[in-house]
Design a binder for these strands. Structure first.
Lengths: 205, 205
DNA sequence: TGGAAAAAATAAACACTGTTTATTATATTT
DNA sequence: AAATATAATAAACAGTGTTTATTTTTTCCA
């Protein structure tokens, strides 16, 4: 089936082309300032063509959000080399915060924006697999810490959720511009202090 | 000056009418689904009239966001009655989380949405006074704890930012639908566990 | 009290947005 | 080469925030 094969290849290629145009525009100008027409213009196709490859804009944003999770997952994956679970947990916090601050638009899409979640609702999916996988990486590490006799009196899931909330809260506040003028420090200083505190708290648990 | 007085009164009255229509629509349908035309229709004025009272939509959203801070401030204010700063800190966490979960659209506008911050940018204001005031309520309480010999080895500002990030992170993840399918628990259970952990961590610092 | 001046409200337009439908162009099959 | 299936698009629809020119209403003063 040489011909239908080429056909499907062309289909996935144009789909990938749309994705890459969407992504670059998205990183350049932000999610709110990227329209279907912008994407179509960049790849020199008509706007309507995009709808032959994606159901709607939310589907594109969801796919981009999944890309982000794959990239973040790759960065977190190398932490498996850290054998001590407490050290791994601290490094995980560091990697998470770094990823968020170096890829703010991606992080926004992954954890803050509403749009990519609408895709799940339309598909009647109730589970957020990307988030679940990432959370399990954290909760497994926390469970290892507990198994090693640390974090006495804490439940792995609740503590994991609190740790996640803690690092997410930091970067979410900065990404959405809620740190301006707080305690007169620069973002650099705020995050240095915040991460130091994070590490101290983890060690003191 | 009875007449110019009445004039300014009418101006502030229509301004208040616009605000209340904006707010009710906003709470009914959400921020993203409330347009200037919707607001105008509800108060039976033309859309253009709204622009005689507000510079743009961002100004309305900023004013609404400030309303939210006044209401949250009122709820936090009663905590001044709690003399023990550590107890006050825990109660503050409780009040913060409760406010966020009972007023999700308002909380969204106050701490997550981009729109109300654009107003500050347009006005060339670099300080976010509402956020600063709220943060100072927290950081003063933390400073009191430290003065009372608690939280040894911690910097008041950094620890305050971490505590804020922690509670903000929790509610922000839920508001933007990032808790679905995480550890199979209901939001109720997740938040009960998270707050218990929060209290335990505070007490153990 | 009637007409000029000032203020308030609006209709209509502009430039966008996501999305759909009917039409045209291209490629494949018979 | 003609018929069919596929791909791409032009144009439209209904919506958005916002601005400009126009009309209505109110105030002021002769």
């Amino acid at each position: 089936m040489g011909i239908t094969e080429r056909k499907t290849k062309e289909k996935t290629e144009l789909k990938a082309l749309i994705m890459s145009a969407a992504r670059s525009l998205f990183l350049e100008r932000g999610i709110g300032e990227t329209s279907i027409r912008n994407i179509a213009e960049r790849i020199e196709y008509s706007p309507a063509t995009i709808y032959l490859y994606f159901k709607d804009k939310d589907e594109i944003l969801h796919e981009l959000h999944s890309q982000g999770f794959r990239e973040m997952g790759a960065q977190m994956g190398v932490l498996m080399a850290v054998s001590d679970p407490v050290e791994r947990l601290k490094a995980l916090g560091r990697v998470y915060i770094d990823f968020a601050r170096k890829n703010t638009e991606m992080y926004d899409l992954m954890f803050i924006a509403k749009a990519p979640m609408h895709y799940l609702e339309k598909m009647a999916e109730e589970k957020w697999s990307e988030g679940k996988t990432t959370f399990e990486f954290l909760s497994n590490t926390v469970a290892e810490c507990i198994a090693a006799g640390r974090f006495a009196g804490h439940d792995a899931d609740s503590l994991s959720f609190m740790i996640w909330s803690c690092v997410h809260g930091m970067v979410a506040l900065e990404i959405r511009d809620r740190c301006k003028g707080i305690s007169g420090e620069t973002p650099q200083e705020i995050f240095r202090g915040a991460f130091e505190t994070f590490v101290k708290v983890i060690e003191g648990l």
